[in-house]
Structures are given as C-alpha cells and as structure tokens.
Design a protein around this nucleic acid. Structure first.
Lengths: 225, 225
DNA sequence: TAGATTGTTAATCGATTAACAATC
DNA sequence: TAGATTGTTAATCGATTAACAATC
C-alpha cells in the first residue's frame, strides 16, 4: 500500500516556517550564494539548526550527510512542497479598502498567487481598475472561478456577509480561503481556511507594550528611592 | 519583595487567545448575555474549557468556584490585561496602498488604537485625507510621537526602508511596532515587534490546498480502478 | 441536597533541542 | 585525515488536556 498523504502530515509550526525558509533562500539566490548549511540558514532566521533539519526531515532528502544544501535545488523543492511550483490562481472577494490594497499589492502575483478577478456587490466599485484587474459584479464570480480554475479566494467582505459568500465559494469549487473577516467560517473538510486577524496581532502587541511600560515605571520608581 | 512582572510572564499561545476571548465576550455583551461558563465560551471558540480556565489562571480571580463568569466584569478585566483599557495612541508609517487601507479601517480606532498620524516621504501622498487623518511628511513624525504620546507604530513602508524608519521610531520613544514589511527588524529589548506576514499566511494556506488537491486526485484514481 | 461550576494541580501530548552515526 | 555537515533518533521542554477539591 502506498504511503498516504505524501508529505502532508506535518505540524502547523513547521508549515509556517516553510515560507520563511523559502524567502531567505530566494534572497541568498539573488546575491549569488550557491551553498548554505543548516547552521547558516538557521542563524539568519534566528532559529536552531536542528529545528531546520528536523523540519526538512518531514520531506526528506534535500542533501546528503556531509554536504551543505544547494540553494538552486532547495528553492524549487520548497516551492513544490508549499504548492506554488505552478501559479495558484486566486481571486479577491470584496473590493473595499483592504481588497483594493491587496489588489495593488503586486507581491501576491510574484509569490505565486496571480489575481484572476476582484468582485464586489457595490455598483460604485464595479469597473474600477487595479493593476489591470477590473472589479466585477459578484454575479460573475462563479463563472470566473470555473473558467480560470481558481483555487484560492481572498475574502475581504464585511463579517456579516462572510459566511454567505463562503458558501458560494465552496459551491463553486474553491479549495482555500484566506479570510480577513473577523469571523469563524464554516466549511467542509476538503476546504482549507486561513484566518488573518489583524486585531489579534495588534492586541498581542499591545499586551507586550503594556508590560514594557509597567516594567519601566517600576524601574523609575526604584531609581527614585 | 513584590512579585515581578505582574501578569506578564505568560506564554505567547495564551496571549494570542486573549483577543479572541475579548471579541466573543463583547459579542455576548452586545446581545445582552450576562453570565457565561468556561464551557460555553470555550465551545463557541472551538477550544477546551480547561484551556480557557488555564489561560485565565495566569491572571487569576475572574470568578469564584461554582459561579460562571460575569460578562460585564470579564470584558473590562481582559481589556486591562491586554492593555487597551485606555486608548493606545498609534501612527501609521507609510501611506501606500496598505497604509491607506489601514487608515481607512475604522476598526483600529474602535478596538482601542486611535490613529494620531499617517506619514510618508512621497510628496504626492502628503496632504491626502483618510477619515480625518491627513498624510504628513515623515519629518513631522518625531514631533507627533512626542506631542501625542504615541506608543505604537504600524509600519507599512517598503522593506528596504523598514530598518532605518524603525531606528527613528525607537529613538523617538515608540514602544511597539506592528511590522507589515517582510523583514526582521532589529530593536532593543524594551521595544516589542509583531510581524504581520501575509506571505506566510497565504503560503501556509497553499500548502494545505496542495494536500487537499492531491488527496482528491488519489481518490478519483481509486474510483477509476 | 444534587448538579454545575471555577481554580488549580497533575497527566498527557506535541514541539523543540541535543546528540551522534554516517558521510563528505 | 580532521573538521564540518546532514539525516535521524532520543531527551528535553512547554503547552494542552484531564482530573478533582472547593464552592455555589
């Protein structure tokens, strides 16, 4: 029997580091570095070399014992693992400020996620042009998903509409949803959701800011004595 | 001797859940719910009740054994822990598309982070108005930070300028940086940084999409036999 | 009282780190 | 060869979950 889920039974913590490895390796590639050891790569990312090797071990065979990694081999290998060896056709649903910002964010395309359409229900937004992608009526969404074989939807609609839109996306065959709405989406098991919660990010920062300020206050008090 | 770092020696995983607890509790408060048990709250967030109680235990004393939590007490308690009992004055540095989107994102204000200024070096952007906040020349930045007692900077400048701007922010007394540039910032120990990496988010989604697609292909093959 | 609930500790689970044989 | 390196397993560490006494 074939080993099931080839290279897919991987901890989330490892998955989240793969893009960081790839990013750093592309940087090295750009400046002409050919070989890199786990120690060098790990140090530049502020992690332990053994963690990097442990992560790579889930996929196996990037190098041989005794030889450092070859950047030119590792980059495409990671791209394949992450699933961006071929462009992953994507759309943006919701053309408000955030949707517009993302549409203008050229990096999405460069990183393997070409935007095949932007959709909204607001007639005032329909027709606006962002880097060549014109905002279309949401009625067109299913047709575009089908025609362009779109796999990922970037969801930037208001929270109240997020679930209804999600149901349409799932029915249309979308496989991944990058959700910017502050809401938990209900999807079947064969659809992946990644929540991008800015509020969580800035509040966790706020927690640390509060602790830093408390500490410095205490220090000042101590000095005043 | 006083217990040091009161309520600050808390695992990151717990800190990241605090905003989710607060968000859900505010929702309950809005619909008039007065009491909530750890079980109810945890279930609505898809986590274990014991985890929620364990998280709360770092801060202690939200209720008494036998009595459920009172929403009206828990909300302000969490706000104080997170550090948003008082508004945390913030600025946006970089008025490109992302900076503009964030400036227009009213929620930041509602959630306790009023935007006291937007800054850029591009003369074409200076003077633009976003919800009452006018883009100013970066030369004004330090003065505004000082005058408005700004604690947090939201950094949306290009990666190449991120470190130089960060150095200026640190020198000006900023305590927390919400970094959208795909770059690791070097800061002293008494400054907190939270990296918001969209590329990591969409690539981790892509990994799961790839695995789902692989699985469904295998299934189809199996059915074809 | 009986059933439900919290606060708190102990047990379990998973992720990180260290160690080292095999290899160059 | 000596020093450096990977792949891989074992040890450690930390986070999650379970258990339960105290309480309502």
């Amino acid at each position: 029997m074939r080993k099931q889920k080839k290279g897919c039974d991987v901890p989330d913590a490892t998955i989240l580091r793969l893009p960081l490895y790839l990013e750093k390796l592309k940087l090295l590639q750009a400046i002409g570095v050919e070989d890199v050891s786990s120690r060098q790569l790990a140090e530049s990312l502020d992690i332990k070399a053994s963690q990097l090797r442990h992560d790579f071990h889930y996929f196996g065979g990037f190098s041989r014992p005794g030889r450092p990694y070859q950047v030119a081999k590792l980059v495409p290998a990671l791209e394949k693992i992450i699933g961006i060896a071929e462009p992953v056709h994507s759309i943006i649903v919701g053309a408000g400020h955030l949707g517009q910002a993302l549409a203008n964010y050229q990096n999405l395309d460069v990183q393997g996620f070409p935007i095949k359409g932007i959709f909204d229900v607001n007639p005032k937004l329909i027709g606006l042009d962002f880097r060549g992608a014109v905002v279309q009526d949401m009625d067109e969404m299913e047709a575009v998903i089908d025609k362009e074989a779109v796999k990922i939807a970037i969801l930037t609609v208001p929270a109240v509409h997020a679930q209804a839109v999600t149901d349409r996306l799932v029915a249309a065959g979308i496989v991944g949803i990058f959700n910017f709405a502050p809401m938990d989406l209900k999807v079947p098991a064969n659809v992946a959701v990644r929540n991008e919660r800015m509020a969580v990010g800035i509040m966790s920062l706020s927690f640390k800011v509060k602790c830093i300020l408390q500490n410095s206050e205490e220090k000042e008090e101590a000095e005043d004595l």
